[in-house]
Amino acid sequence: MTNSIYINTIKQISVQQPLSDEWFDAPVQYADNYVRAIDPDYKQYFTPNEARRLGKILKRALLVSREAMKDSGVANPDAIITGTGLGCIENTEIFLDKLVREGEELLNPTHFMQSTHNTISSLVAIDAKCHNYNTTYAHKGISFECALQDAFLQMSLPPTPSTRGGVKTALVGAHDEMTPAYFTLLQKGEYLGRENQVFAGETAVAMMLSTEKTENAYCKIEAVEKVYGGLRVKPAMTDNQPDYIMVGTNGVAENDNVYFENCAKLFSNVPLLQYKNVFGESYTAPALGVYAAALCLKKGKIPDFLILDTRHKTQDTRPLRNILCYNHFENKNHTFVLLSNV
């Protein structure tokens, strides 16, 4: 028998109001093609001594993780699993810049130590004094889904001697910052900043998964699947029709058409939802898609600005039971996360 897995808490810092679900009723709108996250007043959360070595991404990751743990009442999760496409790119840039400017001599240790991808997950663990399973997935556009699937698979299994009692709670994070220099590079590579494309954003999401449902749980995770290679294999979870599909459309035709074609192939007339119009594009943006879908399920409604097909706006009176989150990265990696209400 497999365990049920619930998302009990989700906290985010993004281009929308930080640590808040306010965007659901009043999303902040942007006209620029590159938007940094709205940071809360960190002085309220960190002492000057705590904050002084932390770059933007580390402050955000630590704060959303702390808040997710506090809200869920889980101080020491059985696993901390993080997905990040770029890691601590700001510190990496500072470190590399000094490396070049100073001829590979006299490098500051702090930026070097905090320039790796797994700094984030380890920092969260050190802060929580958590010595349990700790892993980082740095797989570009599917980093978050890899982290989520790891947690999901471990939590699905009943305890065995080798899993030492099993994973019952997991803090899953998705963190990416976007520096001006990196945005310029990705713009040159035509990944961001293209005509009609949604803005480039930033992601910091922490969600507490548990085999026990809490009173304020967002949703249940029914399945997590990844398919590699142009969706030649039909994902098992697509056998049933979901109520809605939350897709990662971003305004670029060759990206969006993959969703339209595959959804038409796999399902018949399931209305599509979007989230990148609200949260922007980033390697770990799918975590914000899962968050948006989970919040819709928790509230039992979908705001109009998330509905892609205008025919479905305000006319759909069906009770909301489940949402399938479908994202692809360059039409090579396809990820599916099926969420249902609780």
């Binding site: 001594n49 070595r53 100073e102 006299l106 490098l107 500051n108 240790p109 702090t110 130590m113």
Partner: peptide, 17 residues
């Protein structure tokens, strides 16, 4: 000031630089 070992490394770099 409550500095630690990483700060010591930073100070060594500062002195040399």
């Amino acid at each position: 000031l409550g500095l630690d070992s990483i700060d010591a490394l930073e100070l060594i770099v500062l002195m040399e630089k």
